[in-house]
Structure formats: structure tokens, C-alpha cells
Design a protein around this nucleic acid. Structure first.
Lengths: 122, 122, 122, 122
DNA sequence: GTGGTCTAGACCACT
DNA sequence: GTGGTCTAGACCACG
């Protein structure tokens, strides 16, 4: 379900939160579905439960999941966080376009790259 | 010339290397121009010379500057590193497109965002 | 395990990285085995921990080891770096052959030297 | 005649001494021929005369040239230094063979590489 | 406890 | 004066 890349320099909990976020966005985990428990996921990924806990806290702060004490963590409604995600995404796109122009790409070339890139899946 | 963001969690030397890299790419520092000395830049940014040194080592490893002992650091010819930069950039674009599609954008919408984004300057 | 040659003009960390690289190549340290910790090796060799750290950073950049924060450094899979090593090696051999020819050796003599040389161990 | 590689980390004088040594070995400069004067070579290579001086001192220590005060530097008889050169060369070859075997080459493969390598010229 | 980063201060080689 | 290296000691993030 999730693969940890130990060569990645980012904190583990951030990697895990990102992966979970992706799984939720692409619909593998759907609205109001229960997330795996902190302990079970910790066992599955062979990491410390604290690390999973930290990832869940981050997801909750981002509005992607919500917590019910004694019951577990659940996937939020997409509407609750997707706008924020989109705002951040558009900011990133703008930075990237600037970087591309600095590298000497034209707008047309950037659009070409976009069109090629959209098919990749891993 | 360079502003350090102490809220940024990345290492100082990485921030500094990134900023310098940008200045070189956008032509503020041109080919074979002398970079500020390790010590002068350390004073200017109020950081330890070793931190600047580390940033310069990174830039050298990336082929962006070259070093002459006892004389200083100099900006490399753009041809020497721009291809590698472009390769990395196109990889990043592909990841971003995937993320955008997950967020529910269509190709056409992504291209619209690109077109808007290209004008920003900071 | 490792002897430092203080007559060698190269930086300490480079000597150490080289020696470790050899130990890994010849199988004394095997794939995914844990490297000695930065601090323990620093004590063993009576050098500053930062020097070991620098050696480990170099080995990581060369793809010879990988790092897991908070856990330690581990030997990479040989396939990950052996091809690059071989490319560099063949370049060095070519330079050496040129040098030998300049010194007046014939091809046959070089091959004789090779055959004698292959048995040495230190 | 000589190209300086500023990306080479070795001291300038060592690079220059090496290049001159090569020129002598391959016969471009022949026995008892006068070497270029320190000053003229310094001008030609755009380096400090001290650097050339240091290179000449090294060549003299290695027995490759000899100095006559007030007259200049001259190429030694090959017999005077070639044996030492050969001894050092054979030591380097032995190290290289060991390294090659560690990398998984067989003797036969090393000999093949030798044969391919002998044709290169720069 | 482990690695990652930063600071401070020192000495060396090169120009 | 410039970069390259090393030492010493500190703090932080992660497990």
C-alpha cells in the first residue's frame, strides 16, 4: 500500500502523510471511510507508532481527515479541503512556470511538456 | 541580494545555494563572473563561513560554479549544466501534472493556469 | 580495520571514504549491512566525528551507502554503483596505458606487468 | 603547448610539472634541450612566475631536468630518471590491477581493456 | 543513541 | 586574501 523511501531526506511522517493524501485524493480511500489505526499501520510499515501519529496530525491539520476519539480517524469530505489544495497547487504551478522561463523554455514549450507529462503513472 | 528565511526548515546552505543558483540562471551573475568570496558573503548574510562554503560545494557539484584555489569561485558556462537542470525540471513538471489531474483539473485547465502563471515576478 | 596515513596529503575524510569503499567492494562489509556509527568510528580512528560524517556523505553521494536518519548508514546494493565505478576504472586504465607507452613499455610488457601485479595483497 | 585545467583540484605547479614531464618523456623536448625560461612560460600560461619556478623545482627533484645558474633549465638524460619513473609506474599498475579484480574483472578482461586503451591520444 | 546542521576558530596551500 | 580542511562543541529531528 505504501512504500517508504529511506533515501528521501524528508521526515518519515511527511512522506507517509503525502502518500496517504494521494491515496485519498485518487479515491482509494473514500469519504468517511475509516483510516487504518495508528498501531496497525505502524506495524505494517515497520515504523514507530509516533511517526504514524504525527502523519495523522498533519493530515488533520490539512483538513484531509478528521478524528473521533476512541473510534479512529476518518476521511473528510473532499469539498472540505480540496479548495485549499488547489490554491497551494496553483501557487506551485506559478513558481514552476517562472523557473521554466528562466531555463529558457517558451510558453508553448511548457505546454508541450505538460501534454507529454500527463500520461505517466507509477 | 539574498534573504534567509528562518522559518524554512531546509538547511541554510541549501536555501543559499538555491538563491545563488537562481541569480545565476536569471543572469544577475554572468558566465565566468567572480562569485562573492566565502567570507564576504558570510558577513553579509550573518552566517558562518562554513555554511557558505557548503553552499558553494553544492553549486560546484551541480556544475553551476567552478573553483580556483586562492582566487575564488566563478560562474560556469550555462551550457555546462543547463541540460541537467532541464532534465530535472521536466521530471518535476510531470509529477505536478499528475498531482493536478488527481485534484480534478483537466489538461485544458492546467494549460490555462500555466498561461496565467507566467507573468508573476517577485 | 582502517589505518590513517598522516603523510598522505589528501583530506582525512577522503582517505577514510576510500578505505571504506574498498572494504565494501571486497565484501568485508556486505549489502544492507550496517556501517559503524559516525561516533564509534570517530573514537576508533581518533578523529573528529565531523570527519567521519564527511566521509559518509561522500560515500552516499557516490551511491555506495545509504542513510536512514536515526538508524544509521547501510551498504548499498552493488548493482547501484558498480557500473559507474567500472566506467571510471576503465578511464584510469586508458590513462595508465598511455603513460606506460610513453615510458617505453610495449603492449606485451604492460600485459606482463599486469600478470605479475594481480597477486599482491596488503 | 600546455593547457591548464582550473577544475583540477591539484596545485597548479603540479599540473604544469606533470605536463612538462609528459612532453619530455614523449620526446617533444629532447635531452639537454633548454627548457622555456620561467618568465616566458609564466607569461605564456598566464600564471605567476613563482608557480612555474615551483614546477621546475619539482622536476629537478625528480631528476627530470637540471639547472645551470644564470643559464637556465635543461632536460636530463633519460637514463637518469626513467628507472625511478618505471618503478613508480609498476607500483601504480599493481594497485590498479587489485582494484580491477575487486570490481569483478578477470585477468583476461583487464588485458582486453589494456589493448583497447592503448590507442587513445589527446 | 543516531545522523544532520550550524557555529566558532584554527591552520594550510595557493596567488 | 582566498578557498580547503580539520577540530571542538552545540542543538535539533528521528526512532
Amino acid at each position: 500500500m505504501i512504500l517508504i523511501d529511506y533515501k528521501d531526506t524528508r521526515p518519515l511522517y511527511e512522506q507517509i502523510a503525502d502518500k496517504l493524501s494521494q491515496l485519498i485524493l485518487c479515491g482509494v480511500l473514500s469519504e468517511d471511510e475509516k483510516m487504518p489505526s495508528v498501531r496497525s499501520l505502524a506495524v505494517e510499515l515497520s515504523v514507530n507508532p509516533n511517526t504514524i501519529q504525527k502523519a495523522y496530525v498533519k493530515l488533520e491539520q490539512d483538513g484531509i481527515i478528521y478524528t473521533i476519539k476512541g473510534r479512529g480517524n476518518f476521511v473528510s469530505k473532499k469539498g472540505d479541503f480540496i479548495d485549499e489544495k488547489k490554491r497551494l497547487f496553483e501557487m506551485k504551478v506559478k513558481e514552476m512556470v517562472d523557473e521554466g522561463l528562466l531555463l529558457g523554455y517558451t510558453m508553448e514549450m511548457l505546454i508541450m511538456i505538460i501534454k507529454k507529462g500527463g500520461i505517466t503513472h507509477d
